[in-house]
Structures are given as structure tokens and as C-alpha cells.
């Protein structure tokens, strides 16, 4: 079992310092900020390396940071074999929100990524079925953005209560 700091050091040896940053809030879990371009290779390494073995993607969430005008994706990983946990984070500018999909690495990412696209509007490159999941396909906007304003009508029906 490795601590998040040790996992970060381990990853740094493999991918260099430019693509990764170790961050921590005042409370809660630390996370590793990963360059959007390297998320797929980092994920694959984390899954397959004998010292990492992160075989499950517990959760994948999309976030909107209005102040920085960025979107984020957070990956919570766990290794049932080595009992270790790590959080990865990717941040992309809101006008170009493309993140490579990790669906090919952990199948469970399929629906989580569709939800992140649906709710905050991150687009996942290489996703086999890149469609909305909770909302109808022709819905406008992404509800979990902080500046979201619901559309007034949906197919001629008012959305106001």
C-alpha cells in the first residue's frame, strides 16, 4: 500500500515533472493534476504497472470552475489488490473542453463520461458512444455549469413549473 505522495513520486519517475502536479486542499484528500494530453497514458500505467494495479475506477465526476473559466474531470481510483487509493484531476479551458476518454481502460467510464458530458459539457475524445445520458439528446446547455440558465421551452412545452 502506497500513500498518495509515494504514488506521485512513482508516477513522476515515469512521466516527468511537466505533466503532473501534486495538490492538496486545506481538508480532505490530495489529488494529482494531470495534463489532459497524458491522462490516457497515465491511466493505462496506473492500471497495468505491478506497483500500482488500480483495477477499479470508483467514480468520475465533471466540474465547472467559473472563476478560472475551466472545466474539470476527477477520477477516483482504487486498487483492490494493493488496497491503495488515488485521485486524478484534469482541467481544460471551457472553450476547448476536450479530454481523452479512458473508456478503453476502465469500461465503467463509459456512462460516467457520458454523464460528465451531459452535465458540464466536457467532450471525451475517442468515446464510442458520445451522447447525453440523463437528459434528452436535443436538450440545450449543460445543467451543472454554474452559469446555466434552463431553456424556456422544450419541444413547445414550457419548462417552468
Amino acid at each position: 500500500m502506497k500513500t498518495p505522495e509515494e504514488i506521485f513520486e512513482y508516477l513522476k519517475n515515469e512521466f516527468g515533472e511537466d505533466a503532473l502536479t501534486f495538490e492538496k486542499g486545506d481538508i480532505g484528500d490530495p489529488w494529482i493534476l494531470v495534463d489532459a494530453a497524458s491522462i490516457k497514458s497515465v491511466s493505462k500505467f496506473l492500471r497495468d504497472d505491478p506497483g500500482m494495479r488500480f483495477n477499479t475506477l470508483m467514480c468520475l465526476s465533471g466540474l465547472h470552475y467559473p472563476k478560472e473559466e475551466e472545466l474539470g474531470v476527477v477520477y477516483n481510483l482504487h486498487s483492490t489488490e494493493l488496497n491503495q487509493t488515488i485521485t486524478l484531476k484534469v482541467r481544460v479551458p471551457i472553450d476547448e473542453p476536450a479530454v481523452p476518454s479512458v473508456e478503453a481502460i476502465w469500461k465503467t467510464a463509459d456512462w460516467h463520461e457520458r454523464e460528465a458530458y451531459d452535465m458540464v459539457g466536457v467532450t471525451f475524445e475517442g468515446h464510442p458512444n458520445h451522447k447525453r445520458i440523463l437528459l434528452p439528446d436535443d436538450w440545450e446547455g449543460h445543467p451543472l455549469r454554474k452559469d446555466y440558465v434552463p431553456q424556456e421551452f422544450y419541444r413547445g412545452v414550457t419548462t417552468r413549473a
Binding site: 492538496k24 486542499g25 486545506d26 481538508i27 480532505g28 484528500d29 489529488w31 470508483m58 467514480c59 476527477v74 477516483n76 485521485t87
Partner: peptide, 16 residues
């Protein structure tokens, strides 16, 4: 709460 984030999981009847 101070600034930060956390992921906490529990065993519900249906799973994690």
C-alpha cells in the same frame, strides 16, 4: 468547511 475535496464510500445494500 475549509477548501478541499473528499471522496467517501460506504456499503449501501446495492453496493458502493
Amino acid at each position: 468547511a475549509k477548501e478541499g475535496e473528499i471522496y467517501v464510500r460506504t456499503e449501501s445494500p446495492r453496493g458502493e
